[in-house]
């Protein structure tokens, strides 16, 4: 069976990567793209040799099985609710929602419509991450004591720094991936968040810097740097790193370190050209396969909301100047 997929908005740059992943996937078809910015839908449709629809409603009325929501963060809820009402399975970009209430509404809409919701957490598909998880599951380092994580990047600007579109700056953008990896790895929920957050990198209204400390219900403690602290001249977009400290050893992961180093007189700079596995392709393939077979999706909407709730707690902690418990979402 060919899984027919539509894309609801390409506002997020990851939507482009997902579109090319769908095109590269045998057994999947990119039926079309819709966007509230029609010109953006048309140019993306041209790039990916597919059709631009005139509206979300039109695309949802077409013969498709599933959608990918790649909009600005605040539109995740309305687009997910529309897709659920139309009976389509959904792969939604992270952060799942900009408030716990929105996230709960999305979960409820999908449940009552009988469709599945997956949060786009491609890092779970990284072969190095899979290897790390199996080492932990295998007991190679014994009981886990602590985790140190980072997910830094360059500031994406655009709607990411317009709070009415994004719901937050660096902290909402970069907390969720690594929080999800930690939850998945530890099979445990975050019980407490402390955060130092600042906007001193760009001196604007949005936060650009976040150092979080997390406590898990199994006693593990962790920190996470979720800052937009990579300068424009950094040789790559950013990083995802984890150091997992156990009683019997340490596992370290530098997810995007499989690179060539290019010193170029054309650009006058140094850059890293990645040669590692395309994890977006693995994630889209897992989504399409589950949709085709009617089996449960590997990552849920609940996972997305639990990770987002940690970022909301980080903002609350920074405001209060003390540790706070994230809202329990499940």
């Amino acid at each position: 069976m060919t899984v027919k997929i539509g894309i609801l908005s390409v506002a997020h740059m990851h939507a482009y990567s997902y579109a090319s992943a769908v095109n590269a996937l045998p057994g999947a078809e990119l039926v079309g793209i819709a966007d509230h910015d029609q010109a953006r839908a048309e140019s993306a449709a041209k790039t990916f040799a597919t059709r631009a629809f005139g509206s979300y409603e039109e695309l949802l009325a077409a013969d498709i099985d599933a959608v990918i929501v790649g909009s600005e963060n605040v539109r995740h809820r309305p687009l997910t609710e529309m897709a659920a009402a139309a009976g389509k399975h959904i792969l939604c970009e992270k952060p799942l929602a900009t408030s716990v209430a929105d996230g709960r509404a999305m979960l409820a809409a999908c449940k009552s419509a009988g469709v599945q919701l997956m949060t786009a957490f491609p890092c779970r598909f990284s072969p190095a991450m899979v290897r790390l998880k199996s080492a932990v599951d295998n007991g190679d380092i014994g009981k886990v004591i602590a985790v140190r994580g980072t997910n830094r990047g360059r500031c994406p600007f655009d709607w990411f720094t317009q709070l009415d579109q994004s719901g937050g700056g660096a902290v909402i953008d970069h907390t969720v991936h690594v929080t999800d990896l930690m939850r998945w790895l530890l099979k445990s929920e975050v019980t407490e968040v402390y955060a130092e957050i600042s906007n001193r990198m760009f001196q604007q209204e949005f936060d650009d810097t976040g150092f979080l400390t997390l406590e898990f219900d199994n006693g593990v403690f962790a920190t996470l740097d979720s800052s937009w602290s990579r300068p424009k001249s950094f040789p790559t977009w950013g990083d995802v790193t984890l150091s997992v400290v156990g009683e019997k050893g340490v596992l370290t992961l530098d997810m995007f370190s499989q690179n060539l180093v290019l010193y170029s007189d054309k650009t006058g700079g140094v850059s890293w050209s990645p040669w590692g596995t395309n994890i977006d392709e693995l994630m889209v393939a897992a989504f399409a396969k589950a949709v085709a077979s009617g089996s449960p999706l590997p990552i849920t909407g609940e996972d997305g909301l639990a990770a987002a709730a940690v970022s909301f707690a980080a903002y609350a902690s920074a405001k209060a100047g003390k540790p706070v418990a994230p809202e329990v979402v499940l």
Binding site: G249, Q258, G276
Partner: peptide
């Protein structure tokens, strides 16, 4: 700190 190590996973065991 941020080297393009080409080694995305390291296990250091007792």
């Amino acid at each position: 700190f941020n080297q393009p190590a080409g080694v995305p996973f390291v296990a250091a065991l007792q």
